[in-house]
């Protein structure tokens, strides 16, 4: 517990944590306010309808979760890599290991702290996103009466938990890459490159059926339960895993990423 407590202390006191929170919440608020402001002024009826679907509660809850996983996953890759990469870049891991601390325990506890902070950030962004979506729905004249739907409200903790899992899994991938490279910069760079490569490869139709099993597609799919678009589990024109399958894959990726990170830490020759 002492190790977890100081791992959390390090993250809470770290300015990057709050900057990431602010960026995530700001982006999501910006998206929804923009949608609310532009609704009603679209030239195409189809575009107008799409915006109205995005802001229509209770579906908007899932849309908010999707944005949190999307933007949050991107930021989480960099954050996970930055946190453990900093221990290598700054040489602080040296002092920890030299005190006789278990490398594997340190790795796992550090990630657990990251996951808890990610949970806090996801909740914060989710609340900001819902507030922004309600505001946008009112601006667009759609109204937000659906936001208080009892069944939907009861399912929100589950949706939030899946959102957390998706973002934590993305953080785990960045974390593992940084641990493998023993570098903050390489971890962030490689993690983001991996993230964007996966997004761009979606443009190749032949790869889409395979890409749904890739880490960042999986992390996005954990909340892709909306039927706002195509009912046969596709999100727009892109196929996605159904949410329950995605959760299993996401947990699998998280476990594998942590195993890789632990193995890398266990074997590492610390010369930084």
């Amino acid at each position: 517990m002492a190790l977890l407590s100081v791992a959390l202390l390090k993250l809470v006191r770290r300015p990057a944590t709050w900057i990431v929170f602010a960026i995530l919440a700001g982006l999501i608020a910006l998206v929804f306010i923009s949608l609310g402001a532009t609704a009603g002024s679209m030239e195409s009826m189809g575009d107008e309808l799409q915006i109205r679907v995005l802001l229509d509660f209770p579906t908007a809850y899932t849309i908010v979760a999707g944005f949190v996983v999307g933007f949050g996953g991107l930021l989480a890759v960099a954050y996970g890599a930055a946190v453990i990469g900093a221990d290598w870049a700054w040489g602080t891991i040296r002092a920890i290991v030299a005190r006789g601390e278990s490398r594997v325990r340190y790795t796992l506890v550090t990630f657990l702290a990251i996951a808890l902070i990610v949970g806090l950030g996801v909740t914060f962004a989710f609340v900001i996103g819902i507030g922004s979506a309600i505001l946008a729905a009112e601006m667009a004249g759609i109204g937000s009466s659906g936001a208080t739907d009892a069944d939907t409200l009861a399912s929100l903790p589950g949706l939030l938990a899946r959102t957390w899992l998706g973002v934590a899994q993305a953080a785990a991938v960045g974390f593992a890459i940084a641990m493998l490279f023993k570098s903050q910069l390489a971890g962030i760079g490689a993690g983001l490159a991996f993230y964007f490569a996966e997004q761009f490869l979606q443009l190749v139709p032949a790869l889409r059926d395979v890409l749904i099993y890739f880490p960042f597609s999986v992390s996005s799919a954990v909340v892709a339960t909306t039927d706002a678009f195509d009912p046969d589990t596709s999100f727009g024109n892109f196929p996605v895993l159904d949410a329950d399958t995605a959760v299993v894959w996401s947990i699998g990726y998280l476990v594998v990423a942590l195993a890789v990170a632990c193995l890398a830490a266990w074997r590492a020759q610390i010369t930084q």
Partner: peptide
Amino acid sequence: VESPTFYDYL
């Protein structure tokens, strides 16, 4: 060992 390393923000 080598130069002392710390978290500057703590």
